[in-house]
């Protein structure tokens, strides 16, 4: 029980700090801490495979990607002078209103979920004992019952890969015959 509260507190605290942080680099690192805590919770739930995959995929791959992008863009802090000026000229009080409305909406969501969960009696849902799932059973299920979904996932990854390359490619204008000729799109 204590480890559940410990991991839960770390996960919630780190996630809160992620959205309270002004510096994106810290946000990314705090999110990694939150994922670590979630991974601990998965171990408590007898899912060591998911716990390790969580670290490998989320912390080891996706977050590195985020960190890379933050560093490449040199971590621009939120609301630079420029942004504020631009926004003031465009839509005066809109941004603040959206924030308050959005925050209220999120709080409402939490209240609603909480209410729904406590309504049918908080005592229910004790876990059955001895349900340790091995990697073997997961693999067997994944490659038989979920084989089609698994294959579709590989197509999804391929599409994402191509999409990312196409989107992030910096177009070479100087090379002979390569890249797009300077047109109206390159003008700012």
């Amino acid at each position: 029980m204590t480890s559940f509260y410990l991991f839960g507190a770390v996960a919630v605290g780190a996630s809160l700090l992620v959205i309270a942080q002004r510096n994106p680099v810290y946000s990314v690192l705090l999110l990694i801490a939150s994922f670590g805590a979630l991974s601990g919770l998965y171990v408590l739930l007898d899912a060591p495979f998911v716990a390790v995959i969580q670290i490998i995929v989320y912390a080891g791959a996706i977050m590195v990607l985020f960190l890379f992008v933050v560093m490449l863009l040199n971590a621009p802090h939120e609301d630079t002078e420029q942004d504020l000026e631009r926004m003031a000229s465009r839509r005066p009080a809109a941004a603040g209103g959206v924030r308050i409305f959005g925050g209220a909406l999120a709080a409402g969501l939490l209240v609603e979920l909480w209410w729904a969960l406590t309504k049918n009696g908080g005592e229910s849902g004790v876990f059955p004992g001895g349900a340790v799932s091995s990697v073997r059973t997961i693999g067997r299920s994944l490659f038989t019952d979920y084989a089609f979904a698994f294959e579709v996932t590989s197509v999804l990854i391929l599409v994402a890969m191509v999409g990312a390359v196409v989107l992030a490619r910096r177009e070479v204008v100087t090379g002979l015959g390569r890249g797009r000729p300077p047109g109206p799109r390159t003008l700012k």
């Binding site: 690192l29 060591p48 390790v52 490998i56 912390a59 590195v64």
Partner: peptide, 25 residues
Amino acid sequence: DVNVAILVIFAIASMGVYGIVLAGW
């Protein structure tokens, strides 16, 4: 003794990147 030891090694190896990236940045 972890029954997913190899994956654990792989996971920790992938965490080693952070020390280096953060040091550089």
